[in-house]
């Protein structure tokens, strides 16, 4: 499964578990408008760390949380490179 697919699947499952209604998951979707709250994003980071062994936000103080879904995916794809 690609990194992109893992992230999309994780977002959909977290939204379902936390009873959140998701906006259509396009690359230009602003994460603040996605329907997920800050705890959901914390869950996403925790789950992706479990699945991929990576946490790009803790690996550098210079990484700030991305604005769009596309930027979030790119951050994890970059970590895979």
């Amino acid at each position: 499964m690609s990194t992109r697919s893992k992230i999309i699947q994780a977002i959909e499952e977290i939204a379902a578990a936390q009873k959140k209604t998701l906006a259509p998951l396009t690359d230009d979707l602003a994460l603040t408008n996605s329907g997920l709250d800050s705890l959901c994003f914390a869950l996403l980071v925790a789950r992706l760390e479990d699945e991929t062994g990576r946490d790009p936000f803790s690996e550098s103080d210079e990484v700030s949380f991305p604005v769009t879904l596309g930027e979030l995916i790119a951050l994890y794809e970059h970590e895979h490179a």
């Binding site: 914390a42 869950l43 980071v45 925790a46 479990d50």
Partner: peptide
């Protein structure tokens, strides 16, 4: 450590 707990609910 709380991340493991979050993943388990």
């Amino acid at each position: 450590v709380v991340r493991s707990m979050m993943n388990e609910g």
